[in-house]
Simulated assay, not measured.
Amino acid sequence: MRATFMYGAGDVRIDTVPDPVLQQPTDALLRVVAACVCGSDLHPYHSMPAGEASPMGHEFIGVVEETGSEVSTVRTGDLVIAPFAWSDGTCEFCREGLQTSCLHGGFWAGDGIGGGQAEAIRVPLADGTLVKAPVGEDSELLPGLLTLSDVYGTGHHAAKTAGVERGDTVVVIGDGAVGLMAVLSARRLGAERIVLMGRHKSRTDLGIEFGATDVVAERGEEGIAKVRELTGGHGARRVLEAVGHMPAYEQAVGVVRPGGVISRVGVPQYSEAPVGFGSLFGPNITLTGGPAPARAYIEELMPHVLDGTVQPGKVFDRTVDLDGVPDAYRAMDRREALKVLIRP
């Protein structure tokens, strides 16, 4: 089969590798029908040292081709959604809805598991990981369902951990796909005012379609002042940080009101962040977030995708086949594409 590998910063290639095979009775084999490039894939694209090839891709849906003898929840021919972390569904953390901390699980393209930007993949712990979708692989809903593997679940996680509720004022920092999904999720949870901090008009226009009421293009102190002006001088009670870089975190600290919550779901590209008296402790600000347990949210969010209540698939603005994946990385890195759908 053919699959995507990264060999170093800026070096993405499509290689031919052996087809995956069942290794455990709890495995399933999938033929990948849709995958995508994640904004977090751009972090190694910028900084990965040259060396051993790393498989890429953690967002995908596929058709079950074969199952191990102990798999009971899916069967051959099912279209299934794979969240970006695989999990057993039975350990104490899975039972608490925290599958990203599963005692026996792991993450795609790591832990010796292949990536989803490929023609096929082996899924460990299939019963705990995969969720059947009640449509066929030719459904026009595939882009929206694909967002449930990560980006929509991550935006929802940001809003949920921040405690967004009806009538709230929310600030979303970042106009990438996760930020736009955070806007969509905050609106779905009832937020009355949603300020989107982003400066790319095509993206912020989609953010407005998803529910943003205000857009702030300014950054740094200027952006913080603008948000505070829009929020009566005190800042917002809920702030969703969807970037992962220190300037975004500093903006979050600058726009959150005393007693408010900052939820970080952008993968942090820094090791330290201010949490002391002058930043979070003094004004009683809560810091939360983390990697979204997407598996916990799929059944909750999928009905709204199926009935068209929400259309998260609109974040995909380009589609490529496997040969086009290296160009997809370049396009997203250059901000020429928001999020690229892959059809192997």
Rank of each mutant, 00 (worst) to 15 (best):
D175G: 14
E221S: 15
H200Q: 10
K226N: 07
T204Q: 04
T204S: 11
M246F: 07
G176H: 05
E165N: 08
T154V: 11
L184K: 13
T204G: 06
G155P: 03
K226C: 03
K160A: 14
A248Y: 02
E229L: 10
G207S: 11
R199Q: 07
L146K: 12
L141M: 13
P247V: 08
V164S: 10
H200M: 03
D168I: 02
E221G: 13
D175Y: 01
G179R: 08
A236G: 13
K226W: 00
R219W: 01
L148E: 07
V239M: 04
E137M: 09
D138E: 12
Y152R: 02
F210T: 14
A182S: 15
R237P: 03
L180M: 05
T154R: 11
I208D: 01
D205M: 02
G155S: 08
R188S: 14
G223F: 04
E192T: 01
L230E: 03
G207A: 09
V131D: 01
S185G: 06
T231S: 14
V164Q: 09
D214G: 11
E241Y: 01
E165C: 08
I208T: 15
E218I: 03
V243C: 09
L145E: 09
H156N: 11
A182N: 08
G179A: 06
V164F: 03
L142A: 13
E165K: 15
M181R: 03
V183H: 13
A186E: 09
I173V: 15
L230N: 07
D205R: 13
D150H: 04
G220E: 09
K201E: 14
A191F: 04
G163H: 08
A162S: 15
R193G: 03
G155L: 00
R187E: 09
A236E: 08
G176D: 05
I173K: 07
D214T: 04
Y152N: 03
V195R: 01
V135N: 12
R228G: 10
